[in-house]
Amino acid sequence: MDDATTVRLDARALKVLAHPLRSRLLSALRLEGPATATALARALSTNTGATSYHLRRLAEAGLVEDTGAGSGRERWWRAAHERHSFFPTDVQDSPTPRRR
């Protein structure tokens, strides 16, 4: 695993990424490159408010980052890594109860 391009997810990051729109946002940024919430919302047929919210959650988990480009309220986002991975042992002690 190349540490510069791959991040190993912990239980918190996996929980953040489990949301379908967040997964789609991260995939779009990895495949298409940096974009604004408005452009991503248009591409993924969702609204800008939800897109912005989920981008911030991904950023809190270290999966995306603000590029620093843009002006005013326009923020450009990019994927923080090219790919991610995890092992079951990374999350086996997670306090989240398992569903039966």
Score class of each variant (00 low, 15 high):
Leu14Trp: 11
Thr89Asp: 14
Ser27Leu: 12
Phe86Pro: 01
Lys15Ser: 08
Arg100Gln: 14
Lys15Gln: 07
Phe87Trp: 15
Ala79Glu: 00
His54Met: 10
Met1His: 13
Leu29Tyr: 01
Thr5His: 07
Thr36Leu: 03
Arg56Cys: 11
Thr5Pro: 04
Arg30Leu: 08
Arg78Lys: 15
Val7Leu: 12
Phe86Trp: 14
Val64Ser: 01
Gly68Arg: 00
Ala80Arg: 00
Asp2Leu: 08
Gly62Lys: 01
Thr6Glu: 05
Val16Asp: 05
Arg75Lys: 11
Glu82Met: 12
Thr51Ser: 03
Thr51Gly: 03
Ala50Gly: 15
Leu58Glu: 03
His81Thr: 06
Arg30Trp: 06
Ser45Lys: 13
Val16Gly: 09
Val64His: 01
Trp77His: 11
Ala4Gly: 10
Ser23Leu: 14
Pro88Ile: 10
Val91Met: 03
Ser94Met: 04
Leu25Ile: 14
Arg100His: 14
Thr36Ser: 03
Val7Asn: 04
His81Asn: 03
Gly70Trp: 05
Ala50Lys: 14
Asp90Val: 11
Pro97Gln: 05
Leu58Met: 07
Tyr53Phe: 14
Val64Leu: 02
Leu40Arg: 07
Arg83Trp: 11
Lys15Glu: 02
Arg99Pro: 13
Ser85Leu: 04
Thr48Gly: 12
Leu25Pro: 06
Gly70Pro: 02
Arg75Val: 14
Glu82Gly: 15
Ala39Lys: 05
Thr51Gln: 01
Arg78Glu: 08
Val64Phe: 00
Asp93Cys: 08
Lys15Phe: 06
Leu14Asn: 09
Ser45Cys: 11
Glu65Phe: 02
Thr36Tyr: 01
Leu14Thr: 09
Arg73Cys: 04
His84Asp: 13
Thr48Pro: 10
Tyr53Trp: 10
Val7Ala: 08
Val64Thr: 05
Arg42Pro: 07
Gly70Asp: 05
Arg83Gln: 15
Arg30Ala: 09
Arg12Pro: 00
Asp3Pro: 11
Ser85His: 04
Leu55Ile: 08
Leu14Phe: 11
Arg57Asn: 13
Leu44Phe: 00
Arg42Gly: 09
Ala28Phe: 05
Ala11Asn: 04
Ser94Gly: 08
Thr96Gln: 09
Ala37Glu: 12
Thr36Phe: 01
His81Pro: 04
Arg78Gln: 13
Tyr53Glu: 11
Leu21Ala: 03
Lys15Leu: 07
Ala59Asn: 06
Thr6Arg: 07
Ala80Ser: 00
Asn47Arg: 04
Arg100Ala: 15
Asn47Tyr: 02
Glu32His: 13
Pro88Asp: 05
Thr5Tyr: 05
Gly62Gln: 01
Met1Phe: 13
Ala41Ile: 03
Leu17Ile: 00
Glu65Trp: 01
Ala43Asp: 09
Thr46Asp: 07
Gln92Ala: 15
Thr51Glu: 02
Glu65Gly: 08
Glu65Gln: 10
Leu9Trp: 08
Ser23Val: 09
Arg83Met: 12
Leu63Ala: 00
Asp10Gly: 01
Gly49Pro: 08
His19Ala: 15
Gly49Asp: 13
Arg98Cys: 12
Thr5Ser: 09
Glu32Met: 10
His54Lys: 13
Pro34Glu: 12
Arg42Asn: 11
Ser52Phe: 10
Thr67Asp: 02
Glu32Gln: 13
Ala69Asp: 15
Pro20Lys: 05
Phe87Arg: 14
